[in-house]
């Protein structure tokens, strides 16, 4: 696989604040890489350097083989950027916005007309095409923003927290669009602070904190690193907790944790649903009532907590 985005040792300081502290990143062609980290981790700074908006203090990066510092206009010709803001003109109509950005990409006028129509229809904005953006909802603006970054059919797309501030329905809609784009062969670098979003969209997840990479891999490998599956049983009678724990010991692959407050036993397992059935049978045979039982895969939240010592949405 050819790497279309490559960054080595990117460092960027703003005064005393170290935004990036030696970031390395490789995005293979035609894949989605998710840059995951809390606010202030350096995600936006990384995207701004890769999209030529900022110059790194040290380190280098290429996009589609072009150096982001020495050949910025070459890079700009092949990328699309959708930032955290709906970066579209408030007073123009949807169609006028797309025409303006198409003109600024120096595209043929006839092509811009056709492409605008195609994008407006695709993003469910055809009916609103000739209305000023002041009448658009937040979700519509974001969709138009994404359409604007696609006007020149970029082969590489940067999405900086594309769904921050969107309602769940708009978020799902945008996810669908992004999934389609990737199916068409677009390479995507996505930043997000939502673990679920990285889980849904990205093939590879790069976890960053304090400006450096602290882990990377697929969603599954990251979860495996943190630990395997876990059965959680909640009992109706917390007096039976110790007995339940003893009964479940043969199923466990690690230390069993009991939570008296919640009347819950957590058992690390490897056998998946087979071990779940086994566990329930053991408890049932002794007549222990079960209020609730689940087989849990670790979430990216767990991954994040384990890696950084704080949860993803933390400001710190």
């Amino acid at each position: 696989m050819v790497a279309v985005i490559e960054a080595h040792g990117l460092v960027k300081k703003f005064g005393d604040v170290v935004a990036l502290d030696g970031l390395d990143l490789v995005v293979p062609e035609g894949t989605v890489v998710g840059l995951l980290g809390p606010n202030g981790a350096g995600k936006t700074t990384a995207v701004r350097i890769l999209t030529t908006l900022l110059k790194p203090d040290t380190g280098n990066a290429t996009v589609a083989g072009f150096d982001v510092v020495r050949q910025p206009n070459k890079v700009r010709g092949v990328i699309g950027l959708t930032g955290q803001y709906a970066a579209v003109d408030e007073y123009l109509t949807g169609r006028e916005n797309l025409r303006m950005f198409g003109d600024l990409y120096h595209l043929k006028a006839s092509y811009v007309r056709e492409r605008s129509l195609e994008l407006l229809e695709r993003f469910d904005l055809a009916d609103a095409a000739d209305r000023s953006l002041r009448t658009y909802s937040g979700g519509m603006r974001r969709r138009l923003d994404l359409a604007a970054s696609l006007i020149a059919k970029p082969s590489i797309l940067f999405l900086d927290e594309p769904t921050t501030g969107l309602d769940p329905r708009s978020r799902l809609g945008l996810w669908e669009v992004i999934t389609d784009l990737v199916a068409e062969g677009t390479t995507v670098l996505l930043t997000t602070q939502y673990l679920e979003e990285a889980d849904q969209l990205a093939e590879e997840i790069v976890v960053i904190d304090h400006g450096r990479v602290i882990a990377k891999g697929t969603s599954d490998t990251l979860k495996d690193d943190v630990g395997g599956d876990r059965i959680e049983v909640v009992l109706t009678d917390r007096g039976l907790l110790e007995r339940a724990a003893a009964l479940l010991a043969p199923v466990a692959t690690g230390e069993i944790v009991t939570d008296h407050e919640e009347a819950r036993v957590a058992v690390p397992v490897t056998g998946g649903s087979a071990s779940l059935i086994d566990a329930i049978r053991r408890l049932d045979s002794e007549g222990i009532d079960i209020a609730d039982v689940v087989l849990r895969r670790p979430t990216l939240d767990d991954v994040f907590l384990t890696l950084t010592g704080h949860v993803a949405e933390d400001e710190s």
């Binding site: 701004r48 030529t52 206009n73 700009r76 950027l81 930032g83 709906a86 600024l104 120096h106 604007a148």
Partner: peptide
Amino acid sequence: HRGLIDRFRSLPMSTGA
């Protein structure tokens, strides 16, 4: 404030435009 400057600067357009 609206992020339009970021978008303009990410386009292959002339710098002073």
